[in-house]
Amino acid sequence: MTAALRQDEGSDGPPPQPIFLAGAAGPLFCLHFVPTPGKTPRGALLYLPPFAEEANRSRRMAVLQARRLAAQGWVVLLLDPFGTGDSAGSFHEARWELWLEDAERAATWLATTWPEISVTLWGLRLGALLAANLAARDSDRFSRLLFWQPLLRGDQFITQFLRLRVAAAMAAGEKESGQELRARLEAGEILEVAGYELAPGLVTAVSGLRLEALLPALQGCAIDWLELSTAGSEPALAPSSRRLLDSLPASGGPRLTCLAVSGEPFWTIQEITLAPKLLDATDAVFA
């Protein structure tokens, strides 16, 4: 039992080191996974988590994947962005620009701590948009990205996020609409949504994000784009992803390798859920 558990956790390597990095607006909590002693590090990955509650629901998948990659010789840094997890700041103080700057600082820390290896940006959902945005600003520096279920449009994501409050109001026998909530945000109000204090500045920045608009700037970047597919049939990319990928120009832009595997959308599920095939597929990308 213990042995099986250990194997499942991939914990043959050293335990991760909890560290605090100097962020632009306060200390940032990170978990630093290092390769098994004796292995030459092959490269580093910086994990950028998804938004709000999705980050908590995904934490176990991120930790498991980090351990497995470390066992394959990769350095992995899991970042708690400013205002989230154990990092400094409150959620309502978080800003997209700050998250970009802090992610860049974390990448610099990795490059300084592990000279001579390159840093791959690994993002889940909104974290993938953050990775794409950061790489688009500095494509000479970031030449490899890993997307897990990337969000395609920030505005749609905000609409869905605001629905959490609409649904909670429904449960309380009240009625609110996304339109009304947006109007209050536009008027400068901080809104509480599903326990998170949502600031207008962050909403505006996220709403303006389009993966489609960021990808052309990633010329020469290699992107591995992995998605989960719950349907019982053959795993396939979501139709919206397919449409986006088909609309990209045939030349220029990043080199994309896309793959769908079957599994549950663990970032939405209350009970901590794993997607073993996503872990396997990611292992294979970095094998």
Binding site: E53, Q160, R163, L164, A167, A168, M170, A171, A194, P265, T268, Q270, E271
Partner: peptide, 11 residues
């Protein structure tokens, strides 16, 4: 399991 996050996921 049917919390407000689940409602949004289902929708």
């Amino acid at each position: 399991e049917f919390d407000s996050m689940a409602v949004v996921t289902v929708v």
